[in-house]
């Protein structure tokens, strides 16, 4: 394989750090606080279910539910503040943030991945249908899966969703926690909207995590039963090459540059998807 990875500058078994210790810890804090918040909060959206009624009316469970919910909220806020500081103050944080910003390419990537997975265009091409259209717009052929940088559109979407969700939840939750403060500023009907938004945003976040994130990091056959990146933060050169080809080439280019000009050699070969 070394022959493929330009002058052997990146070996397949070389280990890269995808999540450093701080990032992993922030992620774990997010898991803990999010889970606690979901468990202690979301059942209120389904207050009519007999199970929740039975559990909540047992002893002082309902009271402690509230206490834990607010404690978890404080933990989440602390985690976000830490992440905020980390993003602003460290070079790696700033770099990650830049890489996480959505671009036009991400939307195209999403379309391309979907089109590639479905394979309709390839079938049409094989049958010789719509040839002129495909010749003029080769993008729609979806011959190869899209190539990603450090973060693919899925990861970017998740990051931005967490950012947006936290904003909504912390804002609305803060005013639900401090009813008197809220109502000293806002009319009751607006306060009611905070409560509604808090509940529905929670539903959205929960479903997004349980469906989208769980598939991408657990159930996806590529990583099943679980991607271990969140635990050890490690990614191999091979994984980098296949999953984050643009980032891979970037590292390769940087190393080549550091090594000085060499006789012409084929660039890194991009293996098609799977």
């Amino acid at each position: 394989m070394d022959a493929l990875t330009g002058r052997g500058l990146i070996r397949d078994d070389e280990v890269f750090l995808r999540m450093n210790r701080v990032e992993r810890l922030q992620h774990i804090l997010l898991i803990v606080s999010f889970s606690l918040l979901v468990v202690t909060g979301l059942p209120l959206m389904f207050y009519e279910m007999r199970l929740f009624k039975a559990v909540f009316s047992y002893g002082r469970v309902f009271y402690y539910r509230g206490v834990i919910h607010r404690a978890a909220a404080v933990l989440l806020i602390a985690d976000i503040i830490w992440h905020f500081g980390y993003t602003i103050l460290t070079r790696r944080g700033r770099e990650n943030f830049r890489e996480l910003m959505p671009r036009r390419k991400d939307a195209l990537d999403a379309v391309a991945l979907f089109g590639y997975n479905v394979g309709l265009s390839r079938w049409l091409t094989r049958k010789g249908l719509l040839r002129r259209f495909f010749d003029r717009h080769p993008f729609w052929k979806f011959e190869n899966p899209p190539e990603y940088g450090r973060y693919n559109f899925i990861e970017k979407l998740e990051y931005l969703a967490v950012a947006w969700g936290s904003l909504v939840m912390i804002f609305s939750g803060f005013f639900m926690w401090n009813v008197e403060l809220s109502l000293s500023m806002f009319p009751l009907w607006l306060h009611d909207i905070f409560a509604i938004a808090h509940g529905y945003e929670a539903m959205l976040a929960f479903l997004a995590i349980i469906i989208w994130h769980m598939y991408n990091v657990h159930l996806n056959p590529e990583v099943f039963p679980m991607s271990r990146i969140w635990l050890d933060g490690k990614i191999t050169g091979h994984q980098l090459k296949t999953l984050h080809a643009i980032e891979y080439r970037k590292i390769l280019a940087a190393r080549e540059k550091a090594l000085g000009p060499q006789p012409a050699e084929p660039g890194p070969d991009i293996p098609p998807g799977a």
Partner: peptide, 11 residues
């Protein structure tokens, strides 16, 4: 809700 003001009636 100590200090509840008129906002309570706006809704």
């Amino acid at each position: 809700h100590a200090g509840a003001g008129v906002n309570f009636s706006k809704g």
